[in-house]
């Protein structure tokens, strides 16, 4: 026993090193797939305030960009409104459709595109009814999903995060694939698992499929930029140019799916009955 203690004492630096590294690695793994009310991230009140402080200075320089973006968004909303007005005059449109999604507007107070795992912090939290797992979209396309919330802030996993996968559909052919970022270019993502028999073309639209009830279906993700088919590969290598420029994210909407719980529990019940 004495010798064991002596041994531990002799190499205490090395053992402390191992302990601390183990602790870090454990946090790293836990952080990768953890959705909760987390404290040690940028949703934390103190952290968010410090970030907001430095953001104010840099936000001043991007005012022009934000303005352009907002006026573009305004124009799109007006078009959508007009479309809806015309539809409501149509006597064949049903008036008792279930409202499936609610939207909450939020301002981006922190975002990055240069890391492999990018996150976005917004200024809405539990008090605005935001929960982990909700989708975030902008006027131009899908942005990400909520990872952690605090009282007044929330952290989103950006689509520009190598861990994030979004079930999506090639609009023209109707084939289902998965959008995932490879960590390199913040303007393009990869569309995976599109089988050989499909013929995708540059210029095709890629949108969310709505299969996992996080994103509503039909939210634009981007436009196919480049299609390659390696010999003997079962799937295409497809590069998709993102509809939303993530370097200029300023405002976005959090989507609250009213039917998510119903859908999830129905799926659980159905799966439970399978033999």
């Amino acid at each position: 026993m004495q010798r064991l203690l002596n041994f531990l004492y002799e190499y205490r630096a090395f053992f402390t090193f191992l302990l601390l590294e183990f602790l870090s690695a454990w946090m790293l793994v836990l952080n990768n797939d953890f959705q909760s009310t987390a404290y040690f991230n940028t949703a934390n009140g103190l952290t968010a305030n410090i970030i907001g402080f430095s953001q104010k200075a840099s936000a001043y320089f991007s005012l022009g960009d934000v303005n352009t973006e907002l006026s573009r968004e305004n124009a799109q909303l007006k078009t959508a409104l007009e479309l809806q007005r015309q539809q409501s005059r149509n006597p064949f449109t049903s008036q008792d459709t279930v409202i499936r999604y609610e939207f909450t507007s939020a301002k981006v107070i922190n975002s990055s595109v240069a890391q492999f795992k990018n996150f976005i912090t917004i200024n809405r939290g539990i008090d605005a009814g935001i929960e982990p797992g909700m989708a975030a979209i902008s006027t131009f396309g899908a942005v990400g999903k909520v990872k952690a919330v605090s009282e007044h802030f929330a952290v989103l996993i950006s689509i520009l995060n190598i861990d994030e996968q979004v079930s999506s559909v090639l609009k023209r052919t109707g084939s289902i694939g998965t959008v995932q970022w490879d960590g390199t270019d913040p303007r393009t993502v990869n569309l995976l698992y599109i089988p050989r028999h499909v013929v995708p073309q540059a210029g095709d639209t890629v949108a969310t499929s709505g299969y996992n009830a996080v994103f509503p279906d039909g939210v634009l993700i981007g436009i196919v930029k480049d299609v390659k088919l390696r010999e003997e590969a079962p799937f295409y290598d497809i590069k998709v140019e993102l509809a939303q420029d993530f370097t200029r994210l300023s405002y976005l909407k959090i989507v609250k799916s009213r039917l998510k719980q119903e859908l999830d529990s129905l799926e659980v019940v159905t799966k439970g009955k399978e033999p």
Binding site: F17, L20, E21, S24, A25, M27, L28, N41, K117
Partner: peptide, 22 residues
Amino acid sequence: FLVDVFYDSLGLHAMSLVLIAY
């Protein structure tokens, strides 16, 4: 750890920096 909190990358900077300190 504190740097990690701001980068939303819990454990990553702590791990690399402890190695350097060692």
